[in-house]
Design a protein around this nucleic acid. Structure first.
Lengths: 221, 221
DNA sequence: AGTTGATTGAAACGCCTGTTTGAAACAGGT
DNA sequence: ACCTGTTTCAAACAGGCGTTTCAATCAACT
C-alpha cells in the first residue's frame, strides 16, 4: 500500500491536472482515467470514490509543495533582504505554471478562493507557517505596531504576489501576453520588494498620524 | 420582451446566486428554478439553455455593476486624493459581500480567475476602463516610467485590494473572523493608499537605479 | 364569448455521470 | 501445478442532469 503504485500515482497526477483547471464538479472521472491510461473502474478501486480521490490529490499537492527552497543564510541578514528572499520564494511558486507538476500550485490556488474540507490541512500546515514567517519579518520593521496593522502589511505583500496568479488571464487581456511576460520573476521580485519596503520604512515614521491627511504627491524630480 | 419580466429577472437573480457560490457546472438548474419559484421548464423557455442563462446572468452583473459611485469632484484634485478615491471606490465593491445583489461581485470575481467566453465583455467594458483610469492616476506620479513599470504599480494597487476578496476564507482562518472584521473599508482605504503612496513617491527618486541593491531597513525611530 | 399569442405546469425523455459488477489476468508463495 | 490475494478490464447499472413535450392557463384584443 505504501510502496510505489504506478497506476495510483498516475491517477493522482491525472486527477490533479483535471481538477486544477476544471474544478471538482466539472472534472470527469472518465477523463481522469483515460488521461492516466487506466480503466474507468480504477479510481473506485484505488480511492473509493471521486471525492476521496480529490482529497488525496489535494493532500499530495500540499506535501509535494512543502519542499520549498527557502533561500539559505537569511537567518542573520537584514530585514530587507529577508523580505526580498520571502517575496522571491513566494513569487517563484506563484509564477511557476508552465513546468510539470504545475497543477499542484493551481489546485492550491483553487482551495484558496473556494475552500473545501480538504483545505483545512492546507491552511494549517502550509499557509500559516509561511504567514507567521512573513509576520516575523515585518515585525522587525514595525515592532510597535498593533497586530491589526501588521496583518494589513502582510496582506499587502501577499496580495501583490498572488495577483499575478489570480488575475493572470485578465492581465493578459489588459496589457497583452508578451508584455506580461516581461514581468518575470526577477523584475517582480525587485518591484514588489522595493514597493513594500518604501511603505514599511516611511510608514514607520508616520504611523502615529491618526488623521487621514493626504500626503501631497511630488512628481518625479 | 424588453419590459419587466418578473419571472425572468427572478430567474437571473436566482441563477446569479447559485452560479456565484457554486460555479457554472456545480449549479443545478432545478435549484435555480425552485429558488426563483419558477417551473423547471422556465429557464429553457426564457433563455434556451443553461449556458445562455449563465451568459445573460454575467452580462446583467456587468451592467448593474457599472453604476459605480465615482467620487465626484476628483477631476482637479491632487493625484494622492485621486488615488485614495480610486482605492476607496474599488474596495467598497470588493468588500461588499453581505448586502443583496452581492452575487454580482462574486460572479465577476469568478470570471476574473476562470474566464469564460462571457468574460470578454467584462474585460472590455468594465475592467479595462477602470484599469486605464488607474494608469492615468499613476502616470501623474511617475510620468517618465516605462509602461512596464506602470503596469506593475497598477497591479500592486489592484492586487492589494482584490486580495481581501480572493483570499477572504483563508484570511479568516489565519487571523480570525472578528479580527478580519476590523479591517473595514475605511481602515483598508487608509492603509492601501498610504502604502502605495509611499512606494510611488519614494520610487520616483530611485527609479534609475538598475542594480538590485538592497536598501537597508531602518527600524522605526 | 372567441381568438390569438405568450407563459406556466407536471411529467417524461435521453444522456451523461459516478459507481458497481463479476470475470479475467497477474504475481507470489507453497 | 495449485492456491491466494491483488489488480485490471469490459460492460452494465442506477441516479441525476439538462432538456423537451404538450396540455393548461392567462392576458389582451376584436
Amino acid at each position: 500500500m505504501e510502496v510505489q503504485d504506478p497506476t495510483k500515482v498516475r491517477l493522482i497526477d491525472a486527477a490533479g491536472e483535471e481538477f486544477a483547471d476544471k474544478g471538482f464538479s466539472a472534472a470527469r472521472v472518465r477523463d481522469i482515467c483515460v488521461r492516466a491510461g487506466a480503466n474507468g473502474a480504477a479510481v473506485n478501486y484505488h480511492f473509493g470514490d471521486k471525492e476521496q480521490l480529490y482529497v488525496e490529490t489535494v493532500l499530495c499537492a500540499h506535501h509535494c509543495g512543502m519542499d520549498m527552497e527557502e533561500l539559505p543564510s537569511n537567518e542573520e541578514a537584514g530585514p530587507a533582504e529577508q523580505l526580498r528572499a520571502f517575496v522571491h520564494g513566494f513569487l517563484s511558486r506563484v509564477l511557476a505554471i508552465d513546468e510539470p507538476n504545475a497543477w499542484r500550485h493551481r489546485l492550491m490556488l483553487r482551495e484558496l478562493t473556494q475552500p473545501t474540507p480538504a483545505s483545512d490541512v492546507l491552511v494549517r500546515e502550509v499557509i500559516r507557517p509561511k504567514f507567521e514567517r512573513l509576520l516575523e519579518i515585518l515585525r522587525r520593521f514595525r515592532p510597535d505596531d498593533p497586530d491589526q496593522k501588521l496583518y494589513a502589511f502582510a496582506f499587502s505583500v501577499i496580495g501583490q504576489c498572488l495577483h499575478y496568479r489570480m488575475a493572470r488571464p485578465v492581465a493578459e487581456r489588459l496589457i497583452g501576453a508578451e508584455t506580461l511576460e516581461t514581468l518575470d520573476l526577477e523584475f517582480l521580485t525587485e518591484h514588489i520588494t522595493t514597493f513594500s519596503l518604501a511603505a514599511l520604512e516611511r510608514a514607520a515614521s508616520e504611523q502615529d498620524r491618526e488623521s487621514p491627511r493626504l500626503i501631497e504627491a511630488k512628481p518625479s524630480l
